[in-house]
Amino acid sequence: MVTPSMEPSEILVQLIEPAVKGTLNVLKACSEANVKRVVVVSSGAAVSLNPEWPKGQVKDETCWSDTEYCRRTNNWYCLSKTKAESEAFEYAKRSGLDVVRVCPTHVLGPMLQSTANASSLVLIKLSKEGYDEFENNLRMIVDVRDVAEALLLAYEKPEAEGRYICIAYMIKSQDLVEILRKNYPNYNYPKKFTEGKEEEKLSSEKLQKLGCSYRPIEETLVDSIESCRQAGLLYYMYVGTVGGGTQLASQSACLNLLGVKGASKESPGSNSRLLATIVAGSVLAGELSLMSAIAVG
């Protein structure tokens, strides 16, 4: 993991070199095994960071992030992705290996892992931190399931070639939050949005011509939140009436209030199921008037 205190030489060893060498090792192994086509998953980060690109012009597959600009601005992730894809491109030219590159932007949707990554963390923080102010920047989102479909198209379609930007939606943070608010009205969203700098846009036209289509963004956002809840990354909180007043409490506080023993810190999902059962029983017994249940973390 890259930290602000790391020296450029450390970043080179821990982030840049593994990205480049790892990509080349796989491509060389594919050549030796006589693989016909390789699909490399690059990133929109290898496309978007180019200050020399004409202002106002939508960025397409011909745009590359400027490596020197990445270094000057300490955008090490962008640098690693750009260098790795560039090496894949050059290797394909030298070796004749058919290499197709797909560049997804901000990937959301259901997670396979139980820990937050950089992409899901953005959504988690928007949902629970309650920022006083938040910059209303442009989010370039694609669903992980649509990325998987794009990779299949790039692999299976004979006409697939070169590079493909994979982006489904460009949406402002405030508009994204409004979609979340409609589905989860009690989350702790930013209180105010401030306008930032004007941001340039990317085009996925080439990939769509290949046959790729995208699911609705609301489906992506809702499935992302539900996935985070199931993984325990967004914990449950409950709104109820206790003593004549509305109360908001975390699931652990509710379990303590109800005198429940044996709650699991390691498995918040099991706590949620346990609490849901207890609360349902309490409502039937007239012990608690439950208004609504929410997951905010």
Results as ranks from 00 to 15, higher is better:
A29C: 08
L24V: 12
V26M: 11
G130H: 01
R163I: 06
D175F: 01
E200I: 08
V283E: 13
V296I: 14
A276S: 12
A150I: 13
S292A: 11
L284I: 10
Y131F: 15
M237L: 06
M1W: 02
Y155A: 15
S119M: 06
V58Y: 02
S272C: 09
E287H: 12
I171E: 06
K261N: 09
S272A: 15
G269H: 08
Y235D: 07
K125S: 12
L284N: 05
I225Y: 03
Q247W: 07
E200P: 05
S127L: 14
Q174R: 13
Y164Q: 08
L121K: 14
V147Y: 06
A231T: 02
L207V: 15
S80Q: 04
V296W: 06
A148E: 04
P8L: 06
V260G: 00
S5F: 07
Q57L: 13
V107H: 02
D66A: 05
P104A: 10
K83E: 15
A45D: 07
K28Q: 14
K265I: 10
I124A: 13
N186C: 06
L257M: 14
G56V: 05
K83A: 12
L257W: 12
G211P: 04
I167H: 01
E61G: 10
A148P: 02
Q230M: 08
L27K: 05
D146G: 06
E133T: 15
I167G: 04
D223I: 01
V41N: 08
S120H: 08
I217M: 11
R71C: 14
R72T: 07
E68S: 11
L112S: 12
S289G: 04
P158Q: 10
S42W: 01
E287F: 07
L221H: 01
K209N: 15
Y238W: 10
P216M: 02
G109S: 08
E199Y: 00
R181M: 08
K36S: 13
G130F: 04
P110T: 10
R163E: 07
A33C: 08
K191T: 04
V47T: 13
A168P: 02
P51R: 03
R37T: 05
R71F: 10
R229C: 13
V38A: 10
S272L: 08
G56Y: 00
S43E: 06
M111D: 04
G22I: 07
M111P: 00
E219T: 13
S289A: 11
P185E: 05
L112T: 13
V279L: 15
M291T: 12
L233Q: 14
Y155K: 12
L112A: 12
E195Q: 11
G243Y: 04
S282T: 05
C166L: 13
E87V: 14
